[in-house]
């Protein structure tokens, strides 16, 4: 019930100015990007908002080399409607984004705010599977993998997330995403994103990432190796899915038990890999 009492609202026009508000890590200061999270779940001790709409970019740039740079203030709707993102990795981004929340949220939620929030997400497993990187400003700019951003808790330290970068994709690469929830607009009780790169005739890179376990995201590296070694035949996919089930840690929650979530890891991984194989074959 008790909502924070906000006393100050800043609108810095440069990243440096924004940084000056948040660099000391005061728990009473929060960066405001889309607003969809802070309006309803800011801790009661927050008294200062730093609105970064004027200092962070909201455009998507498809670079000539095939990589894509997404400004942190880009909304999910702008991402969903973007052609370059639509064709990247067999269209996995719009596949995920079209079921993300609902239009009333996607029209205002930003990619930067979402990632910095670091909660249960459909977006994070996809970005992990795509080897996405983030650019973080902490007095100077650093680029790091999204995996490192979370693994090293950079998202909890004072920082500004300024952009997301999808790396140069190999020619024969496809990804797919599946989510499992009670209704069409609901938290996932599990999600899976798989990406497979073909390097000549062999699997080059394989990514199998599960989210909402209820952890944010986990890679099934044993299953990834299995696919690299055995390819994408139906039996190999089944075996990889069983491995994923064993290595992905799940927890009991009120919406699903750990046992059921583990079962879903296997079913969804198998389905997701099968879909990736179909997409690769269709290319």
């Amino acid at each position: 019930m008790s909502r924070p009492s906000i006393a100050e609202y800043h609108r810095p026009s440069t990243v440096e100015e924004a940084w000056s508000h948040v660099s000391d890590g005061s728990p009473s200061v929060r960066i405001l990007s889309g607003g969809t999270d802070l309006t309803i779940s800011a801790p009661p001790d927050v008294d200062t908002l730093v609105d970064v709409a004027r200092c962070l970019d909201h455009s998507i740039e498809a670079r000539r080399d095939g990589s894509i740079r997404i400004g942190a203030m880009t909304t999910f709707t702008d991402m969903l409607l973007n052609d370059a993102l639509g064709s990247y990795a067999a269209g996995v981004m719009p596949e995920m984004l079209s079921d993300l929340g609902n239009p009333l949220l996607r029209n205002i939620s930003t990619i930067g705010g979402h990632l910095a929030r670091g909660k249960l997400s459909d977006v994070v497993p996809v970005l992990v599977a795509l080897d996405a990187e983030v650019v973080v400003y902490q007095g100077d700019e650093k680029q790091m993998t999204i995996q490192r951003y979370y693994d090293e808790s950079v998202h909890r330290s004072p920082h500004l997330l300024t952009e997301v970068v999808l790396p140069v994709a190999v020619k024969r690469s496809a990804a797919a995403f599946l989510r499992f929830a009670r209704t069409a607009f609901d938290f996932p009780m599990l999600n899976v994103c798989c990406r497979i790169d073909f390097d000549g005739h062999m699997v080059g890179a394989a990514r199998i990432v599960c989210g909402a376990t209820p952890l944010r995201s986990q890679r099934a590296s044993g299953a990834e190796s299995w696919i690299r070694e055995h390819g994408l035949e139906a039996r190999a996919i089944e075996a990889a899915a069983r491995r994923a089930r064993e290595e992905i840690h799940t927890r009991d929650g009120w919406v699903a038990s750990a046992e059921y979530r583990s079962h879903l890891v296997e079913v969804l991984t198998s389905r997701c890999l099968t879909e990736v194989a179909r997409r690769l074959a269709a290319r």
Binding site: T183, A184, F185, D186, F187, W254, V255
Partner: peptide
Amino acid sequence: FARYKIPGPMD
């Protein structure tokens, strides 16, 4: 309504 789901049009 995030946790107690009532049907939306897709459901």
